[in-house]
Design a protein around this nucleic acid. Structure first.
Lengths: 340, 340
DNA sequence: TTGTAGGCGTTATCAC
DNA sequence: GTGATAACGCCTACAA
C-alpha cells in the first residue's frame, strides 16, 4: 500500500543525469554549477515524480539539521504561544523548523529535553527557560551550538537575548500607582533566579526609591514560580504581614491573578480596597473582572526578533553579542484606582 | 572551542571492542547478544566519554526518526497546550519527540508543515486540525505514516481518534438550560467542516428535539472559526435576528467569550438577561466575569490517549481502528441562571 | 559472543 | 558542466 519513496537517484535516472548533478540542480545554492538546460530537466523530473528530499540523509551529510530547539518553561502560560508563533514564522521563512519542548521549570526535565535535542543535532537553541546560572548554556557553547535567550537575559552580554525592558516597565507601573496617590505599595516578586524575576524586582526597588517611598521587607513576597498558586500564596503573605498596603504590583500577570484570588478570599475588593497591577499583558488577561492594569509588550515580536538573532548566528555572524530590549507600555484598565 | 563529538567508534576503541559490538551493547534491544562483561565495559566507556548517539545517523539507518508530527490549528487557544503536554509526556515515555506545528486553520500552511514533517521522516502524525475531508489524511496513508486524530474525528472509523463525546456534552448543556426554564435557546455553531463543529451542532439539534423545542433558523449562527471575533460576530447576528432568545449555547468557549463581548456592547447582561453556556472548560475561562458555565473534559488525558493510540500503531498494532470518547461533564458557574 | 561488510540517501571533493 | 567516488555515523545480516 505505501507507495515507494522517490529518491534522488530516481530523479537523476528520469532526467538522464548522474545523481550528483541532480543534487546540484535541485539545490538553489549550487544550481549555477549546472547548465540551465540540465537544471530544467532535473526540476521537471523531480516535479513529475513528486520528489521530496530526505532531510535526514541530508542532515547526516551536511551536519545541519535546519532544526532549532526551543525550550519553554510552561506552555500553559498564554504568554508563550504568541512568542512561539513569532519564532516559527521567522524561522520557517529561513528554512528552519522549531522543535518545542516544555520543561515545567524542572531542571532535570530541561536537561533531558536539551540532550534529546542535541542528539537530534539541532543547529541552535532558543531558551525561554534559562535560569541565571544555567549549566546548559555552557554545554551548548561546548557543543558549538549557538543559543539565543528569549524573554530572559544573561547578566553579562554572554548570550544574545530579546526581552522587554523589565526595569522600565516596572517603573511605569509604580509611577502609575504613585500618580494615583498610593504610597504603601507591596510587591509580589517572581523567582529571583530568573532574569525576569530579578530585573523586575530591581526595577521595583529603584522605582520606589525614585518616588521617595519606603519598601519595608514585610511588603515584599517572593514567589517560587510564575504561577497563579504562588501568586495567591504570596498575596496572602502580604495581606497578613502588611495589611495596610493599598496597592500590589506583581512580577507578572499570573501572579496578579493569584492575587485576585487571595483578595477574593480575604473579602477585599479590587480596585476599591486594593489596586493591582501586573506585567506582560498576556492574552485573556483583559477579560478578567476587573480587567487587569498591566505592562504590555509585543509578544509576537519577541519571537521574531529572537529567531532573527539566532538566524544571524547560524548564518555565520560572529559579531558582538546583541542584547535587544523592546519597549514596554502601560495599559491602564480597571484594577487600579486612585486612593480616595 | 567546540569539543570534538564522541562517536560510537570512540567508545568502541576505549572499550577495546568492535564498533558493532559497542552498538549492540548500547542498544537495550540487542544488549542480550553481548556478554555481560563486555556490555558493562562498553557502557562505562560511553559514560566516561559522554557519548550521545547521533540520532540522525540512526534514523537514516533504521528509517525511524522517533519523531511524531503534531498539527495544531491554533496554539493561542489555551485548550491545546494541556493536550500537547499530555501528548509529549506519553510520547517521551515511549522514546518519541513531538514536532509541533501551527496551521492557523490555513490549508496551505497546514500542507506545508505536513510536508516539512514528512521530509524529516516523522514516524507518525497527531492531527488536531483535520477538516472532515482532508487530502493530507490520504497522503499520510499513501506514505505509510500512521495518523491519529486528536480532538477531531473521522466520520467512518477510517482513523483512530480521541475526542470528548461532543453530542452528549451539548445535550448536557441544553438540558441544563431547559432545566432552568429556557425555551428560546440560540446556538453559535462552530465551523461545519470540522468534526467538532459538526458533532456539536448535531447534538444541539438532537437535544432541542428531545426537549420538544423549536430551532428557528434565525436562532442559529455559523462561525467560520473557533475564535473570539467570530463568536462576537455570530452573537450580534443572533441578537439582531432572534432578539427574544433567553439563552445562547456556543460551540466552544472562545465563541462564548465573543458572545460576552457582544452582550456587553448590546447592553445586555449575562446571566440576568441572557444565559450563556460554552464548551471545553478551557484554562482561564473560570476567571471571567461571570465565570462561564461550560462542558469540561480532561484535556491532558486527550493528549495522553492520542499518544497511546499512535504508539500502539507504531509498535505494529494493526488491529481495528479505535475511536475513543471521553466523558463530558457539565460545570455550572455563573453565566447561566433560571428564567425568572 | 564477536567481527566483517555493506548500505541508509545525500552531498563534497575530485577528476574528467 | 558533469560524472565518479567517498563519506557522514550508525545498524544489522551474515560469517566466523
Amino acid at each position: 500500500m505505501p507507495e515507494p519513496v522517490v529518491k534522488l537517484r530516481d530523479v537523476a535516472r528520469l532526467a538522464g543525469v548522474h545523481p550528483a548533478t541532480a543534487s546540484r540542480a535541485l539545490n538553489p545554492e549550487t544550481r549555477l554549477l549546472v547548465s540551465e538546460e540540465t537544471a530544467k530537466r532535473v526540476l521537471a523530473a523531480a516535479a513529475e515524480l513528486g520528489y521530496r528530499p530526505n532531510a535526514v540523509a541530508r542532515s547526516l551529510r551536511t551536519r545541519r539539521s535546519h532544526t532549532v530547539g526551543v525550550l519553554i518553561p510552561d506552555l500553559n502560560n498564554p504568554l508563550f504561544p504568541p512568542m512561539i508563533r513569532g519564532l516559527e514564522d521567522r524561522l520557517a521563512a529561513a528554512g528552519y523548523v522549531a522543535l518545542i519542548g516544555n520543561t515545567d521549570g524542572d531542571d532535570a526535565r530541561e536537561r533531558q529535553v536539551f540532550e534529546q535535542m542535541l542528539a537530534r543535532s539541532v543547529d541552535g537553541y532558543v531558551l525561554a527557560t534559562a535560569h541565571l546560572r544555567n549549566p546548559l548554556l555552557e554545554e551548548a557553547v561546548q557543543a558549538g551550538v549557538p543559543v539565543v535567550l528569549m524573554n530572559r537575559m544573561a547578566e553579562d552580554y554572554s548570550f544574545p537575548s530579546v526581552t522587554v525592558d523589565n526595569e522600565r516597565g516596572v517603573k511605569m507601573a509604580v509611577s502609575h500607582l504613585v500618580g494615583l496617590g498610593h504610597t504603601k505599595i507591596a510587591y509580589i516578586a517572581g523567582p529571583q533566579d530568573l532574569s525576569t524575576g530579578l530585573a523586575r524586582y530591581r526595577g521595583f526597588q529603584a522605582a520606589m526609591a525614585d518616588a521617595g517611598l519606603e519598601v519595608p521587607p514585610s511588603s515584599v513576597a517572593f514567589s517560587r514560580a510564575f504561577s497563579i498558586e504562588e501568586g495567591q500564596r504570596c498575596a496572602n503573605e502580604i495581606l497578613a504581614a502588611s495589611g495596610d498596603c493599598t496597592a500590589v504590583a506583581a512580577g507578572n500577570d499570573m501572579l496578579a491573578v493569584g492575587c485576585y484570588h487571595a483578595l477574593d478570599q480575604a473579602g477585599r475588593s479590587c480596585p476599591t480596597d486594593i489596586s493591582v497591577v501586573g506585567f506582560n499583558d498576556m492574552p485573556f488577561i483583559d477579560m478578567l473582572r476587573p480587567p487587569l492594569t498591566t505592562i504590555a509588550f509585543p509578544h509576537y515580536q519577541v519571537g521574531t526578533e529572537a529567531a532573527q538573532l539566532l538566524i544571524d548566528r547560524l548564518n555565520g555572524d560572529t559579531g558582538r553579542v546583541k542584547v535587544l530590549y523592546l519597549a514596554p507600555e502601560l495599559i491602564i484598565r480597571g484594577s487600579t484606582a486612585s486612593l480616595s
